[in-house]
Nucleic acid binder design. Structure first.
Lengths: 155, 155
DNA sequence: TTTATTTCCGGAAATTTTTCAGAAAAACAA
DNA sequence: TTGTTTTTCTGAAAAATTTCCGGAAATAAA
């Protein structure tokens, strides 16, 4: 596997592990009709080569008191490299911020914010996000329902 | 553990497994200063009780040719229960749609779309999303850079 | 304090991961 | 085609881990 291409076996392994990374080599080998050692080797290489970045446990957000999910659109006052980097650095430190993307178009950043409730969001907005230098405007949108939520890319 | 509260040991286990679910019981037991059997028991219960919904492999999106990430804001023409459910059902079938949220406020849904490039997004928009009944307007925003991307909630 | 309940632990058995040498398959050159 | 090299695959053995269990320790209740 010198070249960077994934064969059908690799793709199937990635497909399966994206859905359920608790599958062990024996189970994978059964599903793939390959030997355990082969599967073991393939998985090791997929990790080594960085196709699999990490394996994580996904928690039930509502069970750990993160009932409110919001998207915050952030506009900055200035757009120098420095301003952007500073905002990115500071916003990443807030525990409520799950994701931060710099965007094209109408606003500068989209944040995905997880808090326990609206009060907590309000406090986050007032005491954390709005206090960052160069933040001009924040538009907040709240999730009514999660219709689809997938970490697995189709392969 | 009859009541639904997590003690500091459970919280620490969840913290660790959210970051790296490849940690085995021996490693966890070392970090927690507990026996392997105790850790094993705790993790089993956390899964049983649904705190850990699933364990997944996170892939490097760019290595599997999903270079473009977009957020699409969707406005519907009508808002009957039927219309909403139909949209949710149909949009979830598209492989480009990683997430779909129904939202409060200015637009009805936010979609997170992963495609290989702008051409693929264009095709998705024209041939899939825009063809759904009752879709009024779609605003597309593209990710310039991922500043923070976390699946782990702070505990 | 005594009793009941829960949590925790060490050790053993069962299972899985990891390693390895050789076989099979594929790629390549003559 | 044939022989050579390289890669991939396999089964088996060794190493490591998970899983189970009885009883000890800690905690809560009587």
């Amino acid at each position: 596997m010198m070249q960077n291409n994934l064969d059908p076996i690799d793709l199937e392994i990635l497909r399966l592990l994206q859905k359920d990374a608790t599958l062990n080599n024996k189970e994978l080998s059964f599903k793939l009709n390959k030997s355990i050692a082969t599967v073991h080797d393939r998985v090791r290489k997929l990790k080594e080569q960085g196709y699999i970045k990490r394996v994580v446990a996904i928690l039930d957000r509502k069970k750990i008191d993160r009932n409110l999910l919001a998207f915050s659109h952030v506009f900055l006052k200035a757009h120098t490299a420095e301003t952007l980097v500073e905002f990115e650095t500071e916003v990443a430190k807030f525990s409520e911020v799950m994701e931060c993307f710099q965007m094209t178009g109408a606003y500068d950043f989209i944040l995905r914010i997880a808090t326990s409730d609206m009060d907590a969001y309000h406090l986050f907005l007032r005491n954390k996000l709005a206090t960052l230098p160069n933040v001009s405007t924040v538009q907040s949108f709240f999730v009514l329902s999660e219709t689809k939520s997938d970490t697995a890319y189709p392969l």
